[in-house]
Nucleic acid binder design. Structure first.
Lengths: 178, 178
DNA sequence: CTTGACCCCGGAACCGGTTCGGAACTTTAT
DNA sequence: ATAAAGTTCCGAACCGGTTCCGGGGTCAAG
């Protein structure tokens, strides 16, 4: 375990591996966070190893938590940087979080609709399959196209919630009238 | 509506652009579908242009619909290919859809939790901000780390519902005891 | 001295669906 | 004829967070 424990203070500088373990991430991830500006480059020991101060752990955990809340590393970097310079990005953070909440709610609506459609279609299929033993062949897929539901692209299910980029929009029949 | 004007039959072969417009996708997407094996390479005209048969539209719409239901192009390709060869992938399709439903429900649970946490944190922040006018500075972010909730990575919000890869896992402190 | 556990680094791969960049071609207007 | 639109073609880029690759150090134990 090689706990640094140098007799001095309770907690001293730790190396990448230890911090990573403590935070539940990989050292690769730590490097990535540093590169993205959410962690801050730690000092280096004589041999070039990173030596993180005890506070780093809290920072990493904070980042993890914020990520779980839907923040992106980029947003986080911006906010943290502002704060590091004495700024008070509180309102911005609040706004950001509010945006996340909206996204989540929107997504919830979409998924609820999707769930309903899935249940309906499954029910229908089971009914049909009951009558078509063995090598079915009843066009299950086909019935998708007919499903009476809105068909309003509820967002590609897995759509990263951060949907919609179309910076230039070349062709693609913009049928987005929402 | 620029219908095919070759006088022959009611509907004749159409080119990429027309099919794309009709299906509400881009020609790029059509190409992609072809490459992924869900569309099937159409014949080519003398100049190398794709010429899709009328049925292609239904196919594309089917794909769109299936995508909206959470199927991936890869799954779709597999199924469609099977079918194309006389197979009856019905049970498989049903199983797939059932899987989607489970994913959606799981995701719904996660998002509901997340929504709750977001609301809570927002409420808390607003309270705090009310008392800290102007240049706030109350550590909003910090309170994230303390939020009493499970903290059980509800899935990175935007996590594509198709979470989790870790083929080899080098380091990374596998703390996934979910 | 070898083994093995850590550490360093830049850059590519991954996922999945879509879009971009830009060359090449066809049709329409001048 | 020729420029200006409009289409089509294709491979490669994109998103975002993480992991992988792979070649090179550092250090303590055996």
């Amino acid at each position: 375990m090689a706990g640094v424990r140098d007799g001095l203070s309770k907690k001293a500088y730790v190396r990448a591996g230890e911090l990573a373990r403590a935070a539940g991430v990989s050292t690769d991830t730590l490097r990535h966070y540093e590169r993205k500006g959410v962690l801050g480059a730690p000092r280096r020991s004589a041999n070039g190893y990173r030596e993180y101060p005890p506070e780093a752990l809290a920072r990493v955990l904070l980042v993890r938590r914020a990520l779980a809340f839907g923040f992106t590393l980029e947003e986080l970097a911006r906010v943290l940087r502002t704060r590091e310079r004495g700024g008070a990005p509180c309102r911005e953070v609040r706004a950001l979080a509010a945006g996340k909440l909206e996204e989540v709610e929107s997504r919830l609506r979409e998924l609820r609709v999707l769930r309903g459609e899935l249940r309906a279609i499954l029910g229908e299929w089971d009914e049909r399959l009951a009558g078509t033993a063995g090598g079915g062949r009843a066009g299950l897929l086909e019935s998708l196209t007919e499903s009476r539901v809105s068909s309003g692209r509820h967002g590609n299910v897995r759509a990263p919630l951060r949907r919609g980029r179309k910076r230039n929009g070349r062709r693609g029949t913009d049928d987005e009238k929402d």
